[in-house]
């Protein structure tokens, strides 16, 4: 009896692994097909523009408000910590580097996953469950090229811009708290920042990171929607999975990318 149960457990594990590998394979094929189908979408750029409106522009408010508050918290916390060492003058550096290197790309990507990613998953999932994608395919229009690829490129293009806006607003928030509210000297705040922040290794690396996050989050969101079972429950689960998987992917990838960038420096 014990042996039977043990074997059943092992079998379940094996089943889970096989399922996961198959899904991964399916996801990889989906991604390849998506890239191959991108030609049409990019040639008709108005399709991408429309999706940038939904993915990028509509995320502006949440991104800038969050950026402002994250920057303000950084200002408060940073000042509090730095003044113990008498280095308040480094507040600008601390705020800028935290935002540009980490918080900007990462938090913006997390917000993007939950704001735009879930919307993409739900939309694709619903289009699938109401047979809209099949109908399009029957009309000899490839849904991958017409619906999914434009969303993908919109996400990829929006993400770095959103992260840059997040960081810029965040630095402004840190400035508001540090300089206007606490009274750190404005000259020191900016000049220390400018002396320490490098365009190549700090700002551009942040942009690279957010570009990678844009690719990953959008691809996950679209795949989950495309792969969702055609039921209300299936779509809602897929939406949840989008948030969970893309958040994990962002954080793990952030570590990997950071390790590479610092290592290569």
């Amino acid at each position: 009896m014990m042996v039977d149960q043990f074997v059943a457990q092992i079998r379940r594990l094996g089943h889970g692994v096989i399922d996961a590998v198959m899904r991964l394979g399916f996801a990889a094929r989906f991604f390849m097909a998506l890239i191959l189908a991108s030609g049409t979408g990019l040639r008709r750029f108005s399709l991408v523009v429309r999706e940038i409106y939904f993915a990028g522009f509509m995320s502006l408010i949440i991104i800038s408000v969050s950026g402002l508050f994250v920057g303000m918290v950084l200002g408060l916390q940073g000042y509090n910590t730095l003044q113990r060492f008498g280095s308040e003058s480094a507040l600008g550096v601390l705020v800028a580097l935290s935002l540009l290197r980490e918080l900007g790309p990462v938090v913006a990507a997390l917000l993007f996953a939950s704001r735009a990613g879930t919307a993409m998953t739900a939309e694709i999932g619903l289009m699938k469950s109401t047979e809209q994608l099949v109908a399009m395919d029957m009309m000899a229009v490839n849904p991958l090229a017409r619906v999914i690829a434009p969303k993908f490129w919109a996400g990829v293009l929006s993400m770095p811009l959103l992260a840059a806006i997040f960081s810029a607003v965040g630095i402004f928030g840190g400035y508001l708290i540090g300089v206007r509210f606490i009274g750190v000297d404005a000259g020191t705040f900016w000049s220390q920042m400018q002396a320490q922040v490098s365009v190549r290794t700090d700002i551009l690396y942040g942009v690279y990171k957010s570009f990678v996050f844009g690719v990953v989050v959008t691809a996950i969101a679209l795949f989950e929607g495309f792969d969702a079972p055609a039921t209300a429950e299936g779509v809602s689960r897929a939406t949840t999975r989008t948030v969970v998987i893309s958040s994990l992917a962002i954080l793990v990838l952030d570590f990997v990318l950071t390790a590479f960038m610092l290592g290569g420096n």
Partner: peptide, 12 residues
């Protein structure tokens, strides 16, 4: 604009 502001105002 945000990117440029970062490059010129925050960066060197």
């Amino acid at each position: 604009v945000a990117l440029l502001a970062l490059a010129f105002k925050a960066g060197n």
